[in-house]
Design a protein around this nucleic acid. Structure first.
Lengths: 388, 388
DNA sequence: GCGTAATAATTTCCTTCGTCAAGTATTGAT
DNA sequence: ATCAATACTTGACGAAGGAAATTATTACGC
């Protein structure tokens, strides 16, 4: 049976939270280096780490090879016991549930998905219950060591209350998803916006580790952006943040469904690409896959559409870099998006429009498997245990 | 003689800093309401406030009229003793020093300026010494109760080390201004970027009070932006932040001196306005004042230039709102800039391009006297005393 | 006028967290 | 073997903040 301090929180003191977070995100670290990094005495680290080791969340590794002058007692690094606890993460889209089980280090252990024919709340909860059962009761025997579930939903989500205020794809309004999912699954549930979840995962377990500020851009039907500034996720006072897709980058560009002009999304979003490709090819039934195939096959007109889109995205990313100056930026395509067609143009647009030293901001452009979204949900769940 | 705890810091504990900051920024507050607001016990507030009262930084006001049901001991609000200490703030431009003396509440008590014929470091320090002497030894007798000086400089400034890495208008490279100014004036010096200083002033003492996130946009020769997110000033990992002027908002717009295309500054900055006005009027000697006069006089072509500029600025501001979602945005013209010609177009551009609920973000558009920049420097100096 | 309820502020006592300083553990170098 | 260097642990101590009781000051009902 799982037990820990008090009512669900893993750590009781800020120092213990800091110690566990640092070990979790920055790999094995000795007590002394933790103390240096966190500005604590080594005694404080020893005291904070002890209960975490006793509870099985941390373990002491064997001393590694020496560094520095060579004399002195070798450090015994602290590492996270990844098997100590498991977390379910589920991404809810309009037509599918994608679920994963992750360990404490956010490594995916198993995954599954279920198609969704009906995006009503009841149907989704129903499928969610089965998906969680499949994941936890299948091989691996995760059930006994799993208490938490993270859910990622696109739209306006209040993580604190677990309320989905509005989700356009699901057509949900004010759904108390945290409570409902907890009733269905019996797990402790955390609900977060999908892009924020992905950003959190990248910040704690991916390329954003150690960065004081960090941005993640997702390219697909919509174009979104998660932002970490001064070590904290940006939420936006009016419920709006990271809407890089609706930055206006072309005063003479097309009108966007949002009412704006020349929005990045109206130029580079999947529907915009399809619309332009249909217009220019004269084939009204053409799909995004067709457009990608044509561009890869050397069609210059279709290629120019992707080029223009990539440039718009790069300009939007440069706006992020110019405004908040993140230490690094990760650009990920939703699912199997044609990120390779965009990449050079994104970089070109970014480099042209980034001001001064902002061009030094490293840009990672890479595809994003659908499971990553679910892993993001699991990462949020891990975070809710470690730093509530 | 001024005395306080330890080595220059006003408060010793985080709680005392929080109490003093709250009283400073949010006006008189009773101990109980402070406790509620800060999440402390009222006992803790009493203990934190006592030494601040003893040192003369806080004072207890007479009980005010009752609120609520009516029964109970009336609260005795704590207020800042504005006269307790004074601060000098100086804005350094390429051709002038503007200085003010502020009290602890950042109210300007007196001001002065000195023309600058030579922007070399020696000449500036020389004039700075005289300006400070003029301010402190003139009527008011501020010298005895003044220990700190804030300096605002445009360009790349490291507030922590007090180093001016690069200032384009002054042509300074790696000037240790904090140390040099301290030697000249005998005061404790803080150096900050001018836009950040202004943002800090507005965040602590102006319209940004109480806002978790907040943006200030300055319009003039350059177009800049100071950003507060999650209660903290944004600095940018690569030394770049708030460069709203170099967001690309028009893919077919003019090329900017930064190498970008359709930058806000290349459309709406004072030099860009002048250039366009000259081209369209055919008068190569035309100044910004002429352009403003023509536009105000009804010249439709010149008016359209301002309209386009205002729209570009509004689009840039919408990018800020869409990305970080500040609780409010203040737009200020540098000096006497023609903000009235811009205002409606800034609002129009913003409202068109702001996504969803971001349009609810209140926009204040107002002129900015040059002294405000110096007051910003003083505000940073106050901050360095209160929350180092 | 006088108790009583209500709210504000203070005081006293106590817990807790983290530091300091001293001590233990484990290594390489001489 | 001894010593220097580094890592970690232990226990005493101090400071910060909380809980609860106490004091202060008001309005209101009688």
């Amino acid at each position: 049976m799982l037990t820990e301090t008090g009512k669900g929180a893993l750590t009781e003191t800020p120092a213990a939270t800091a110690v566990f977070t640092a070990v979790l995100t920055e790999g094995p670290l000795s007590r002394v280096s933790l103390a240096r990094q966190l500005g604590l005495s080594s005694a404080a680290v020893t005291k904070a780490a002890r209960p975490l080791i006793e509870m099985g969340y941390l373990q002491e590794l064997a001393a590694t090879e020496r560094t520095g002058p060579g004399a002195g007692r070798p450090a015994s690094p602290l590492a996270v016991q990844a098997d100590r606890e498991f977390f379910v993460g589920v991404k809810i889209t309009g037509d599918e549930l994608i679920g994963v089980v992750c360990d404490l280090c956010a490594d995916v252990r198993t995954s599954a998905h279920r198609p969704l024919t009906d995006p009503s709340v009841e149907a989704v909860l129903n499928e969610l219950g089965r998906l969680v059962d499949d994941l936890l009761d299948g091989p691996g025997g995760y059930r006994a060591r799993t208490r938490r579930l993270g859910l990622a939903v696109s739209g306006d989500v209040d993580r604190n209350t677990g309320l989905v205020r509005y989700s356009p794809f699901l057509q949900w309004h004010n759904v108390p998803l945290e409570r409902l999912a907890a009733e269905v699954t019996g797990l402790t549930v955390t609900v977060e916006n999908d892009v924020k979840a992905l950003t959190t995962a990248e910040h704690w377990f991916g390329e954003g580790v150690g960065a004081e500020s960090f941005a993640l851009v997702t390219v697909g039907t919509g174009i979104g952006c998660g932002l970490v500034v001064n070590g904290r996720l940006v939420s936006g006072s009016h419920g709006v943040a990271g809407e890089i897709g609706h930055i206006g980058v072309d005063a003479t560009g097309p009108t966007c469904h949002c009412g704006g002009r020349g929005c990045v999304e109206a130029i580079a979003g999947t529907p915009a690409i399809v619309r332009q490709a249909r217009e220019c090819s004269g084939r009204p039934e053409l799909t995004i896959d067709d457009a990608v195939a044509l561009a890869r096959g050397g069609d210059e007109q279709i290629g120019a559409i992707f080029a223009r889109g990539g440039n718009a995205i790069g300009t939007g990313i440069a706006a992020v870099a110019n405004l908040v100056g993140p230490a690094r930026i990760v650009v990920s395509g939703e699912g199997l998006a044609a990120y390779d067609l965009f990449e050079t143009h994104i970089r070109a647009g970014f480099e042209r429009q980034a001001f001064g030293a902002a061009v030094d901001c490293p840009l990672s452009i890479r595809p994003l498997p659908f499971e990553e979204w679910a892993r993001g949900a699991a990462a949020v769940s891990i975070q809710s245990l470690v730093a509530p």
